[in-house]
Each structure stands twice: as C-alpha cells, then as structure tokens.
C-alpha cells in the first residue's frame, strides 16, 4: 500500500530532480532525503506533530474524512515517507541515464512532451523505477521507528512486521511466533529482490536483443 501510494509522487519528484532546473530544487532534494538521515523516531514524531489528531494538518484532514493517527493509513504514510528517499534515488538515477537525444528525436517525430515521457523516458527508465519500488517496499516492510512513534503498535491496525516480532520477543513463549514472522519477513524480502532483479534483467535484455 505504502509502495503503491508513493509510486506516482516518487516518479514526479525523481523526474523533477533529474531533468528540471528550478528554484528550491536543493530544498526539495534535501527534504526528500531527510528521512534517510534523521533518526526514524524523529521522523515519526514530526509526522505525529503534522498529522496527529491535534497536529498541524490533522484536524483539517479529519474534516474531509481522512484520519491518519493510530490507523493503518498512518502506518502506510510513515512507511511511504521512510521508503521515499530510497525510491526517489533509484528512479532519479535511471531518469538521468535516459539519453535526452532520444527524447529530442521523439519530439521531431511529432511526440508532445507528455507522449515522450510515456513512450520513451518511462520505458527506458523502467529497470530503475522497479528497483526503486522494490527498495521502498522492502523499507516499508521493515519500518519500525517512525511507525511506532507516529501510530503506535496496534495489532491488526498499525503493526508492521518488525513491530510484531519485537512484541512477540517481549512476551514469554513468543519465540515460535517471532521465528515464524522472521521467516515470513525473509521470504518476502527475498521474493521482492528476486522479482525486481528478474524484471530489471528482462527490461535490459529487451534493449539488447
């Protein structure tokens, strides 16, 4: 959920950072990367300040029916924010690797800028975009600090995998459950990595053959 939700803004920000010169570019760059550097707990606390029930935007969002604090939506938001820099970095690199000469050529063939993005830039950057999405997914799966600070650790609502494992290790007799979840975590991560590797390789092979 977090990965899907951050895919489009991730693409937009990555493209802006890769291709456009604009005022505040450095600021946006810094803002995107902040969650990577800040302690996760700080990020979670900032999210709480911003989107909490009494936060800066919380009441306004509640008016239109979006409540983030202590809900799974909040957990998704926290995971998305934490995964965002990883996603943007990978996507930005792949956008930068796309030859602008090909985009120019597409323009002379009658493709408008939006069409160029869809049929030239996006397909050529696809391997990196997938890699970015998988990284963000893996990060979301493993997110602990920001989530627990922002939306606490409510089973079935805001509990992430590591949070659940942590809870289980804190109660007597929880080791078996913790081990099960650890195996699930390892399997999911492996599957994600293998999938992204396979997709990236297929995309590359298409360019060569």
């Amino acid at each position: 959920m977090a990965t899907l939700a951050s895919l489009l803004p991730g693409l937009a920000v990555a493209y802006l950072l890769a291709r456009r010169e604009f005022r505040g570019r450095a600021l946006l760059d810094g803002l995107v990367h902040l969650p990577l550097i800040l302690p996760p707990v700080v990020t979670g606390y900032l999210l709480l300040l911003a989107f909490g029930r009494r936060g800066w935007f919380g009441p306004a969002l509640a008016e239109i029916g979006i409540v983030l604090s202590f809900r799974w939506t909040g957990a998704a938001l926290a995971c998305a924010v934490m995964g965002f820099p990883l996603m943007v970095r990978a996507m930005r690199l792949s956008f930068e690797a796309v030859d602008t000469k090909l985009e120019q050529a597409a323009g002379t063939l009658g493709a408008a800028p939006a069409a160029i993005f869809l049929v030239v830039t996006l397909p050529l950057a696809l391997p990196g975009i997938l890699a970015g999405a998988v990284l963000a997914f893996a990060k979301a799966m493993g997110e602990f600090g920001a989530t627990i600070t922002f939306v606490s650790n409510i089973p079935g609502e805001t509990q992430t995998l590591p949070a659940a494992i942590y809870t289980l290790t804190q109660v007597p007799g929880g080791e078996a459950g913790a081990l099960r979840l650890t195996l699930v975590s390892v399997a999911l991560s492996m599957a994600a990595l293998v999938a992204s590797e396979w997709l990236a390789r297929r995309a590359k092979a298409r360019l060569r053959a």
């Binding site: 000469k101 090909l102 120019q104 050529a105 002379t108 360019l207």
Partner: peptide
C-alpha cells in the same frame, strides 16, 4: 520536420 541525426537515435526498446 523530419530529422535524421548523425547517430541514428533509434529507440532501443
């Protein structure tokens, strides 16, 4: 305006 570049600039995908 059709443009034939020095390097063909074909779409690799």
């Amino acid at each position: 305006i059709g443009y034939v570049f020095q390097e063909a600039r074909l779409m690799p995908h």
